[in-house]
Amino acid sequence: MRPFAAFRALPTLLKIGFAEAVAYRAEMLVWVFATTMPLIMMMLWTSVAAAAPVVGTGGQQWGSGAFVAYFLAVFIVRQLISAWASWEINFEVRQGQLAMRLLRPMHPIISYAMSNLAYMPLRALVTVPVVAVLLATQSGHVATDWRVWLLWLVSMFGAWLITFFVNVAVGSLAFFLESSIKIMDVWLALFFVFSGYLFPLDLFPPWLRATTEWLPFRYQIALPVELMTGKLGLEEGLGLVARQYGWAALLIFLSLTLWRSGVKRFQAYGG
């Protein structure tokens, strides 16, 4: 599809994706409830902080307020960077349903991206009360520099790119394996530990904390959360966002390579 024609089609794809999101609103709400782990961790860590002071790798003290702000931010970020293309791709490759996407003059990855992004308005709606609570109760733990918030927006898109293209890469493995979902489960296990989803990376031992800087997970959750909660300054944030986009570029390259060679093996089962 010519780039301009593809660009013209995007609003319609988003509009129809949104109509689907509305049709599946109950399912989406269930998913939102299933991702309330940061709120549970918030309760856990605030209790720990109340019992004894928690000091991070950098010598920074984590009080109850810092934990509340951190995990509310984690909840917001997780809602807004989510993608589930690996499940869709895996299912459609196995069932042969991908054939219908391949027949259309639009790259299937664009249509997966649009259908994932189309859920954002509804997800944003879910996060509004959480944002309100964060601003009302923890304003002291929220970034105040507008330039940091601008960088936060850029980092959110970078985090979504990483999440989405990891999904595409893992989903594309379904062209080579009988099912790629278990690989996604392994990725998610690592993600929960190393992204800052279950606890701030600052609480890792120094050597592990340093390792997370070189893994992609940290750029999915911890980076935008640290920007939101004012733990990163503009300069340091810029460097990390640059590294985040490096990961995004690498994953885009990897997923497109896997996709291109995988499609040649597609057997369009059924029908």
């Binding site: 013209r8 319609t12 794809l13 129809i16 054939a99 219908m100 027949l103």
Partner: peptide
Amino acid sequence: LVMGQKQQLLWDLPPSETFELNRAIYD
């Protein structure tokens, strides 16, 4: 390619939405 055993219609939306989607994709 029309396959009697495969569908392109969006399952939970009216067919008019799939028509509109195809209009946009096929420009």
